[in-house]
Each structure stands twice: as C-alpha cells, then as structure tokens.
Amino acid sequence: MASFLRQQARLGQHTLLLTTAAVPLIGWTVHALALHRRLAAAKRDPLTGLLRRDTYTARARQILRRHGNDTTVVLVDQDDFKAVNDMLGHPAGDAVLAATAVQLTAWAGPRAAAGRLGGDEFAVALDLPADRREQRLEHLVRMLHTPVVLDDGRTVNVAASVGAASPDRIGARDLTRLHRAADAALYHGKHSGRAVLATAAHAATPSVNGRRAGRPGTAGWGRAA
C-alpha cells in the first residue's frame, strides 16, 4: 500500500511539472499566432485585402522566375473613379475598390499575386500563357464592368482600363519593364472597354520611376515597381 501511494505521489509530481511547463508554452503559442496574424495583416491593404505594393512585388518576381515567358503582368485602373468619390462620396468609392479586389482575386486565382498599388490602381502577376491570354483578359474586362450595389441600395456603374505585358511579347523578364509596358498599354486603350497587350514599343515609352511619363503619381512609384 505504501509503495502504491509513493508511486501515485511521483505521478502527481510529474503531472504537475508537465502542466506547469505547458502554461508558458501555451502562452507563447498564442503570442506567436497573434504575431503571425499581425505580420500577415501588415502585408495586405486593409481596405481591399490585396497585397501591399512591396509584398506584391516580391511575389510577382517569384512568379516570373518560376513561369518565365508564360507570366503575364496585368495593370488595372478604374475609369472615372474621381467622379464616383465626388458625386457619391468616399464610402461609395471604397465599395468600388473592394468590389474590384474581389473580382481580381476571383479572376486571377489563388496562385497569382494580386496587389493594390495605391488609389484605384491594381496589379496582378500570374501564370497565363499566350494561347489563353487574350480570352482571359477579355473575361477580366467584362468582370470589371459589373455594376456595384452599395449598402443603401444605390447602384454604381463602373468600368476599368486594363493593360497587360508578358516577357514573350516585350523581350524582357524584368518586372519594372513589364509594369512600364503594361502601364503604357493601359493608357493606350484607356476608356476603350478592352484590354491592351503591350508590345516592345510600349516598353520603350519614356517613363519616370517605371511609369509612363506624365502619369499622375509618377514621383511616388518608387523602386518597388
């Protein structure tokens, strides 16, 4: 009986030690999870949930290294977005941006890099070979013309201009050059209701910090593009 009691006492002490050790471990696990969520949130735009510019850039370059000439870089710019803010208010503008993000994410798929570059400008880098490129881009333009229904029931008719660039068409796998070409192609077809695929001529368009010269915000583009 005494031997049994001693054995039970040892088991009790062992359990107590395990329990005591588990408490700080649980605390560190909770802390690590919270830190991971904060870091993940810091990589995403709070309004749209898309990647911030720097994170988008890093992932886009990974996609370029992995898929090479099959990579397509797509730039999207809302048409007449200022008028939405001025006439309907900034909450309506935010709703349009959020809807655009949902459409881009659905169109691009989970393996793509989709980011908000700032304001009403978005970018996507994805594996999209030449034989499917034109059809997929036409589908994107149709999606971006879907009216947005606001919380108060009002409907906003929206549209966006789309420019795309790929290494096989411009002869370079540098992300900055692809962005420059896609940006020039986008403005070449602004308000046309169609996506424009960049050529080598678009890549040669004069630029400031990787953007078409004279484009609003060129001074703030930075090296991340």
Rank of each mutant, 00 (worst) to 15 (best):
M1Q: 14
F4I: 12
F4A: 14
L5P: 06
Q7H: 13
Q13I: 11
Q13A: 15
T15I: 08
L16M: 12
T20A: 15
A22Q: 15
V23S: 13
W28Y: 13
W28Q: 15
T29N: 10
A32D: 09
A32G: 03
L33F: 12
L35K: 13
H36I: 05
R38W: 07
R38A: 12
A40R: 09
A40Q: 09
L47D: 10
T48A: 07
G49Y: 09
G49C: 11
L50Q: 02
L51V: 01
D54E: 15
Y56E: 00
A58I: 04
Q62F: 01
I63N: 00
G68M: 01
T71S: 05
V73F: 04
Q78G: 04
K82S: 08
H90T: 12
H90A: 13
P91V: 10
G93V: 09
D94P: 09
D94H: 08
D94L: 08
A95L: 07
L97Q: 07
L104W: 06
T105W: 01
A112H: 00
A114P: 04
L117M: 10
L117N: 01
G118K: 09
V124M: 06
A130I: 01
R133W: 07
E134L: 12
E134W: 09
L140V: 00
L144A: 07
L144T: 05
P147E: 06
L150C: 10
L150K: 08
V158I: 15
V158E: 05
A159M: 00
V162S: 04
V162N: 02
A165W: 00
P167R: 06
R169L: 15
G171Y: 09
A172K: 11
L175E: 00
T176V: 15
T176H: 12
R177F: 03
R177W: 04
L178D: 00
H179M: 12
D183C: 07
Y187D: 02
K190M: 08
H191V: 03
G193F: 02
R194T: 05
R194M: 03
L197V: 07
G210V: 03
R212E: 02
A213S: 13
G214H: 05
G217C: 09
W221P: 00
